[in-house]
């Protein structure tokens, strides 16, 4: 009976920031992801890659955080792009009808280089 395990790390490059998430994203901890993305945006980082290879499970709570970040990034003429989602996470994006909304890369270097 505790928060699900989620670790977040941020790496900032010249033109893009990479937020790497690992573990599970659900209602207990989606606010951590939401806050991390909001902080990046508030700090002026509008080009963001969300690296999801270590995410084994994500509910709609995680999607809401990522879509909220996309909304803010677009306002700042930036973008949020997805790197290396697992099959399960890709299925969640697809189920939500969000696959077309996010540019997704199978390779982190390609995602970073896309900005």
């Amino acid at each position: 009976m505790s928060e699900s395990e989620l670790t977040l790390s941020i790496e900032t490059h010249k033109r893009v920031s990479v937020l790497t998430a690992a573990g599970r994203i659900d209602s207990t901890n989606a606010n951590q992801l939401d806050n991390a993305l909001k902080q990046l945006l508030e700090d002026g980082n509008a080009n963001i890659v969300v690296e999801l290879s270590g995410i084994e499970y994500m509910s709609s709570a995680g999607l809401r955080a990522i879509v909220a970040a996309l909304r803010e990034a677009k306002k700042k003429r930036g973008d949020v792009r997805i790197a290396t989602p697992s099959e399960r996470v890709s299925e969640v994006f697809s189920l939500a009808g969000l696959s077309a909304l996010f540019v997704t890369y199978d390779d982190l270097t390609a995602a970073v280089g896309s900005f």
């Binding site: 509910s59 709609s60 999607l63 809401r64 879509v67 996309l70 909304r71 803010e72 677009k74 306002k75 189920l95 939500a96 009808g97 969000l98 077309a100 909304l101």
Partner: peptide, 25 residues
Amino acid sequence: PPAMSDLSVEAEPETLKVGGLGIHF
């Protein structure tokens, strides 16, 4: 169901909504 048109790439950022996604799932 969620208004998927609001989620299209052409949508203005302000109109991006994801309400009702859990029920859709």
